[in-house]
Amino acid sequence: MLALIGLAYAGLAWLCLAMDRHHRQVTGAAVGAAFARSLRLAGSVALALSFAAAVAADGWSFGPVAWFGGVTAAGLALVLLLPYRPRLAVGLSLAGCLVAILDVAAGALLR
């Protein structure tokens, strides 16, 4: 469940950063076309991986439900944090990835 939420947060944060308005909000500068494309790709991959993590953890019946819940919670956190601490909001995406890696690693070790 942690991997799901961490990856969902990272994915949404990168998709968000790929949008010009939010890139300005975070860095003060417009986003380059190539960078935006890679952010969108990375964001989509992270969201897809979060879905895979959800299904791996909870199976095909509960997994998709958990994924929708995780994406919603991650999105709410991002959108509430963004106006107040834009850099932190985007920076947390790296923490989300780290949490996901640790969660998967811990799962593999405990098996």
Binding site: V65, A66, G69, T72, A73
Partner: peptide, 10 residues
């Protein structure tokens, strides 16, 4: 517990 919390958040 976690999914229940997500239900509540939503």
């Amino acid at each position: 517990p976690t999914l229940r919390l997500l239900y509540v958040v939503a």
